[in-house]
Amino acid sequence: MSKERTAPEPLSACDEALATRYDVALLDLDGVVYVGPDPVPDAPEYLRKAAKEGMRIGFITNNASRPARVVAEHLSSFGLDVLPDDVVTSAQAAAKLVAAEFPKGSPVLVVGGEGLYVALEEYGLTPVRSSDGHPVAVVQGFDPDVNWVMLADGAHAINEGAKWFATNMDETIPTAAGKAPGNGTLVQAIRAAVDVDPVVAGKPEPPLLETSIERLEAKHPLMIGDRLDSDIEGANAVGIASLWVATGVHDAYDLARAPKNQRPTYVAAGLGALAEKQPGVTVDGSKHSCAGWTAEIVNNAVSVKGEGEPYDGLRAILSAVWTAVDAPAEPVKTAKATARGRRPRPKPAPTADAIALDGALHRIGLAN
């Protein structure tokens, strides 16, 4: 059973370095620590510094293609001190879900790669390659070698009664060449041929993060990611703090348009934030201030003034936008309605898409 927690408010302040406030970092990998085979610039050095401050570094990935051992070897090639136990994959979280429902030795059809085979065996299950083995479950995870035959076999087993588990629903994955289709697109291929939805283990669903917190013995974890709809939403779902970094899929525009369940506790350019305090935002009427910047909404556009660090300006902008879009509808009084005794029509709050951001983001140096 998951522990009852409450995530801190978005854009919270932290009066000490994040690496000393939180005992364990739960780091997403793709777009945060590495992109393809190469590390995000300076990320390994920042993580080594955080570890010296006493923060345990855990690596949490929705990508189920590789076993934890192989991921640890990849990370160690960057000069990081990483053991397989420091890595938790969505394949392990999915295998744990299957093991909770079926007895040891049960056959499970794999639509994916080595990461799923190893995880299933770790939990005492028997991975099989064909639906001819009458599997009790189908587990699907991303692997570049997944093909039509594997997808079709998964659909056949599900239609014959096997329970379907998916490691994650990410529609894309970051690669050195840009975005590429992720496991979510492959799940949709099977979904077109079956009448049920899968049980999902990976972010933003709770199982992966709950499994990670348990395995890494985290008391005060900090989820760190680049994706709002998986990393940040997942952290909010299990009630833990989150740090969004700008090294991967989503950008400042996406942040400004984020719904409530995808808003992070902290925002930063990258992992250097682990060694830093985090400023909060003060609100005075319509004005939202962070360090040297002040932002407000004027005629459905963000106006920002001041100077200083770009991400301080971004925090002020986000506070102004989120406050505006979250505001309750205001009644609009008209002379005609008042004369006839009618209730005034409500004036809806602006949507994030309707608020012009380009000028403000350009002003702080974060425009696309």
Rank of each mutant, 00 (worst) to 15 (best):
T247M: 15
L208I: 08
L274M: 01
P279H: 06
D326S: 15
V200L: 09
S319Y: 02
V298C: 05
V196N: 06
E210H: 06
P331S: 13
T265Q: 04
N300K: 13
P259Q: 02
Y266I: 05
N300C: 03
A256H: 01
Y311N: 10
V298R: 12
L314M: 15
D231M: 08
K203N: 12
S303A: 14
K260G: 13
A316P: 03
P328V: 11
G308V: 11
P328E: 14
P259N: 08
V302T: 04
D284I: 01
E214L: 13
A237S: 14
L318V: 08
L255E: 04
D326I: 05
A218I: 06
A320Q: 06
L274R: 00
L222C: 09
A252M: 07
E309N: 13
V196A: 08
K277F: 00
L209H: 04
D251L: 02
W293R: 02
V249L: 15
G270Q: 03
R315A: 11
R257P: 01
P207G: 06
V304S: 01
C290G: 00
L255R: 05
I317R: 02
P221Y: 09
A301R: 10
K305F: 07
L243N: 06
T247L: 11
L208Y: 04
V200C: 01
D226I: 15
P264G: 10
A275M: 12
E233K: 15
P310Q: 12
K219R: 13
P331G: 12
H250D: 15
A237W: 00
I232H: 01
W322K: 03
S303Y: 04
P264R: 03
P279A: 05
V196E: 12
V321N: 00
T265R: 02
P331A: 12
K277A: 02
E330W: 10
P279N: 07
G306A: 12
D229G: 10
G234C: 05
N299T: 14
A301P: 00
E309V: 08
M223R: 08
G285D: 09
N300F: 09
L228N: 01
V302F: 08
L222G: 04
L222S: 04
A324V: 09
E309K: 10
A316K: 01
V196L: 05
V199R: 12
E214V: 07
G306S: 10
S212T: 14
L255K: 02
L314A: 11
L208R: 12
A295N: 12
R215I: 09
P221R: 12
I232C: 03
C290N: 03
G239K: 13
N261M: 04
G306Y: 07
Q262T: 11
L216F: 11
I232W: 07
H288W: 05
K287H: 12
A252K: 07
G239D: 09
I297M: 13
D231L: 06
H220S: 14
T294Y: 15
M223T: 07
L208F: 01
L274C: 00
Q278Y: 00
V249R: 05
Y266E: 01
S242Q: 04
P221A: 11
A324M: 09
T323M: 08
N299V: 08
T211C: 10
W322P: 04
G248D: 11
Y266A: 03
L318I: 10
E217F: 05
G225W: 03
M223W: 06
K277C: 03
P198I: 04
A237E: 15
V200E: 01
E276I: 00
W293G: 00
Y266D: 01
